[in-house]
């Protein structure tokens, strides 16, 4: 995706969000309404300016690090997937189990080419276990449990 499409896409999303923000405020009481409306108007107008500048060819260009884009996106894509799964697992299995699985899976992804999956599991056990103990025993902050806790 070029900077130009990114700018136009984000401008479109921002205009939509600010219109939504502005219109939803109709149900609020007067003094609860004023601030979100002012901010939504500013963001909406700025987004339009961004779009116009980009179309005219004067849009801001913020270059991100270059490199093999395909491979990078694949890596961060899988990582994001793992993160979402890990999070989704928390209400089911509790934070402790979900994190053991999460750290191990994510480790297995990031370690590829350096260490094996066994190492990821050990890292997960040691680190998650240590924090569990710290919180449960010392800080008295119980980890949230899942459906079976």
């Amino acid at each position: 995706m070029t900077q130009r499409t990114r700018n136009l896409l984000s401008a479109a999303v921002l205009v939509a969000v600010s219109v939504f923000w502005y219109l939803s405020a109709a149900d609020f009481r007067p003094l609860s309404r004023i601030f979100p409306r002012v901010v939504a108007a500013i963001v909406g107008i700025s987004a339009v300016v961004l779009a116009v500048l980009t179309i005219l060819g004067h849009g801001p260009v913020i270059r991100l690090a270059s490199g093999d884009a395909g491979e990078r996106h694949m890596r961060s894509g899988t990582l994001m997937g793992a993160l979402v799964l890990w999070t989704a697992l928390i209400p089911v299995a509790g934070l402790l189990l979900a994190s053991l699985v999460g750290v191990a899976v994510m480790g297995a992804i990031t370690f590829r080419g350096h260490h094996g999956t066994g190492r990821a599991i050990i890292v997960a056990l040691v680190s998650v276990g240590a924090f569990y103990l710290l919180f449960q025993m010392v800080l008295h902050v119980p980890f949230p449990v899942g459906l079976f806790g």
Binding site: S24, D27, S32, V39, V43, S46, A47, V49, P60, I62
Partner: peptide
Amino acid sequence: RSTLKGLIGGGIGLLISTIGIAPIEGSVRY
């Protein structure tokens, strides 16, 4: 890098900050 994008970014932060019960008059927002 870009004051315009910075300004919009600040606006996004302000929008996020309006989520929740309003400090005055107590409307539940977004």
